[in-house]
């Protein structure tokens, strides 16, 4: 059990590196893409809304593995055209194909999550922002988005964990992430314990992420705790003010 870990620890760790790298890059790119698309998804213009709805529905309604095959193997059918466009180097590489698939997939999920967040922003706050004469951009930057992201934050964390777990499918297209390394080591040794070590590695990665995300969430909601704490301290002062106002 231990000797497998000793012998192959460097492979497993490099696999973990690839898994984390793919997940992080895809999640960040998807985050950048999802925001404008989520806002467009909530717009009144049906021509903007419907293509995004279709995109989200497609990527949420099909298996990640099938999407990966569609991009990686499917692009081979258009090799001549893609070479002509100078894009073949991209689609030839399983790494870029995996990244593209994950970005598209995660964007679809994040749009849906952000849409929920945007919808849940209390309407009174938006009205208050309008009443204060904030421009549309300022409304989003100062009032709507901070609220929406705070509401969507736990769900976004779940989505990134799903992406981390889902990234194991890249082992099928010859990439050596944790899963790929594990399968290779198993085919050399036929020792089942390597799968258990891979399980430990995945659990470590997900729990570390959960911890990181919780810290981040505590940081983002720090004002809510700050507001509660002095409220109890300054209660007498507040009472005094209200007593002064009442006739």
């Amino acid at each position: 059990m231990m000797d497998i870990l000793m012998r192959f620890s460097s492979q497993l760790l490099s696999g973990a590196g690839l898994t984390l790298q793919l997940t992080a890059i895809a999640a960040l790119l998807a985050c950048a893409l999802a925001l404008p698309l989520a806002i467009a998804r909530c717009s009144d213009c049906a021509l903007l809304r419907w293509p995004i709805r279709l995109f989200v529905s497609f990527f949420r309604g099909t298996p990640l593995l099938a999407q990966l095959f569609l991009v990686y193997y499917g692009s081979g059918q258009f090799r001549a055209e893609l070479s002509q466009l100078g894009l073949w180097w991209f689609f030839r590489d399983p790494y870029y194909c995996a990244l593209l698939t994950f970005v598209l997939n995660s964007t679809a999920y994040q749009i849906e999550i952000l849409r929920g967040g945007l919808r849940a922003v209390p309407h009174g706050q938006v009205e208050a922002a309008v009443a204060m004469g904030l421009s549309r951009l300022q409304q989003y930057r100062k009032v709507i988005l901070p609220n929406a992201y705070r509401i969507a934050f736990p769900a976004l964390g779940n989505e990134i964990i799903l992406l981390l777990k889902g990234s194991a499918v890249v082992s099928v297209i010859t990439l050596f992430d944790v899963m790929g390394q594990t399968r290779r080591i198993f085919s050399q040794t036929f020792d089942l314990s390597v799968y258990l070590w891979a399980a430990v590695l995945y659990l470590l990665m997900t729990s570390a992420f959960v911890w990181f995300w919780r810290c981040l969430e505590r940081y983002l909601t720090r004002h809510q705790r700050l507001r509660q704490a002095p409220a109890t301290l300054t209660a007498p002062a507040a009472k005094r003010v209200s007593a002064g106002v009442s006739p």
């Binding site: 777990k165 194991a168 499918v169 729990s207």
Partner: peptide
């Protein structure tokens, strides 16, 4: 545990 593992890994552990 089972929610933290990739489904593909669970599948391989069970299969093998």
């Amino acid at each position: 545990t089972l929610r933290g593992l990739p489904e593909l890994l669970t599948l391989f552990i069970i299969y093998h």
